[in-house]
Amino acid sequence: MPETFWTAAGSAEVAFSIGLTLRVMALAVPLFFVLGVPLGYLLGRGRGRFVALVDVAVSLPLVLPPMAVGFFLLLLLGRNAPIGGVLRETLGVELIFGFPGLVIAAVVAGLPLMVRPVQAAVRGDLLRLIELSSVLGKSAPTTFVRVVLPHCRKSVAAGMFLATGRALGEVGVSLLLGGDIVGRTNTVSLEIYNAVFSGQFARAGFLAALLAGVSLVLTLLLKRTGRG
């Protein structure tokens, strides 16, 4: 019996891909905040060659094809690569072709969209407030928590929505770092890819509709944040 839209919704493969995607995003979303806010603050305030290099590195996933980004990361994080090889030899940790690779792919794909709104907010009137806080004798951590974060809260929220939406739809980097191993690393976006190539269009349609619904919710939240 051919798979229908509703039988696809209840299949074990679909349930696994949804569960895996939720697990990946449960780690990626906090990392967007932990990494994205300090990076946006650094790029908004900092000057010099180091800051310029960081800015270029953060921007690369926006301008390079995802497959190229995934390939370069594979050269760094692979089993015999400079970083991946050291981690495997010393700690027994393998980053690629498993759950860690999927988390890295999601963070790399979404992080630039988290950084840019914060960077733009820091370059505005916030610089004057930071200077006033420094004049009043407040430490850098206190200024960051009590001045920067409250002032940038809308930009942080916007960045979180954009980064989450981008990470949910990531295919290219996930394909190379996760390996698209069925029953192990096939997230929702990769399961859509697999379903299309195997002719299971009902399954692909259900998962695509699910991602479209989530993206619509994120877009509405983003618009509401802008109005607020």
Score class of each variant (00 low, 15 high):
residue 2 P to E: 10
residue 2 P to Y: 14
residue 14 V to Y: 09
residue 14 V to D: 05
residue 15 A to K: 13
residue 17 S to G: 07
residue 21 T to Y: 02
residue 22 L to M: 13
residue 30 P to T: 12
residue 30 P to L: 11
residue 32 F to V: 12
residue 33 F to N: 08
residue 34 V to D: 00
residue 35 L to H: 10
residue 36 G to C: 04
residue 38 P to L: 09
residue 38 P to K: 12
residue 39 L to E: 03
residue 39 L to S: 05
residue 41 Y to M: 13
residue 42 L to D: 00
residue 44 G to P: 07
residue 45 R to S: 06
residue 46 G to R: 00
residue 46 G to T: 00
residue 47 R to A: 10
residue 51 V to G: 02
residue 52 A to H: 05
residue 54 V to R: 00
residue 56 V to I: 08
residue 56 V to F: 04
residue 58 V to D: 05
residue 58 V to C: 00
residue 59 S to A: 11
residue 62 L to V: 13
residue 62 L to Y: 05
residue 65 P to I: 12
residue 66 P to M: 14
residue 66 P to G: 03
residue 67 M to P: 15
residue 69 V to H: 00
residue 69 V to I: 14
residue 72 F to H: 14
residue 73 L to F: 11
residue 73 L to K: 10
residue 74 L to K: 00
residue 75 L to D: 09
residue 76 L to T: 07
residue 77 L to K: 00
residue 77 L to F: 04
residue 77 L to P: 12
residue 78 G to I: 04
residue 78 G to P: 08
residue 80 N to H: 07
residue 82 P to Y: 03
residue 83 I to N: 05
residue 84 G to A: 01
residue 84 G to V: 12
residue 85 G to W: 04
residue 86 V to G: 01
residue 87 L to A: 06
residue 91 L to F: 10
residue 92 G to F: 15
residue 92 G to L: 11
residue 95 L to H: 03
residue 96 I to A: 12
residue 98 G to L: 09
residue 101 G to D: 04
residue 102 L to N: 07
residue 102 L to R: 04
residue 112 P to V: 10
residue 114 M to H: 01
residue 115 V to S: 00
residue 118 V to W: 01
residue 118 V to F: 08
residue 119 Q to N: 09
residue 121 A to L: 02
residue 121 A to E: 03
residue 122 V to G: 02
residue 127 L to R: 15
residue 128 R to E: 12
residue 135 V to I: 05
residue 135 V to F: 09
residue 136 L to A: 10
residue 138 K to Q: 13
residue 139 S to G: 06
residue 139 S to D: 14
residue 141 P to H: 06
residue 144 F to L: 11
residue 144 F to M: 13
residue 145 V to E: 08
residue 146 R to Q: 11
residue 147 V to R: 00
residue 148 V to R: 02
residue 148 V to F: 12
residue 150 P to N: 08
residue 151 H to C: 03
residue 154 K to D: 06
residue 155 S to W: 01
residue 156 V to A: 04
residue 157 A to Q: 00
residue 162 L to S: 13
residue 165 G to C: 02
residue 166 R to I: 05
residue 166 R to N: 11
residue 166 R to E: 08
residue 166 R to Y: 04
residue 166 R to P: 03
residue 168 L to I: 15
residue 168 L to F: 04
residue 170 E to D: 02
residue 171 V to R: 00
residue 171 V to S: 01
residue 173 V to L: 03
residue 173 V to H: 07
residue 174 S to G: 08
residue 175 L to P: 08
residue 177 L to A: 09
residue 178 G to P: 14
residue 182 V to Q: 10
residue 183 G to A: 15
residue 184 R to G: 02
residue 184 R to V: 14
residue 185 T to H: 02
residue 186 N to S: 15
residue 186 N to R: 09
residue 187 T to F: 10
residue 188 V to T: 11
residue 188 V to Y: 10
residue 191 E to D: 15
residue 192 I to Q: 03
residue 193 Y to W: 08
residue 193 Y to L: 15
residue 193 Y to D: 02
residue 193 Y to V: 05
residue 195 A to P: 06
residue 196 V to A: 07
residue 197 F to T: 11
residue 204 A to I: 04
residue 205 G to C: 10
residue 206 F to T: 06
residue 207 L to K: 02
residue 210 L to N: 04
residue 213 G to D: 05
residue 213 G to R: 10
residue 219 T to S: 09
residue 220 L to Y: 14
residue 222 L to M: 11
residue 222 L to P: 15
residue 223 K to V: 15
residue 225 T to G: 13
residue 225 T to I: 14
residue 227 R to F: 06
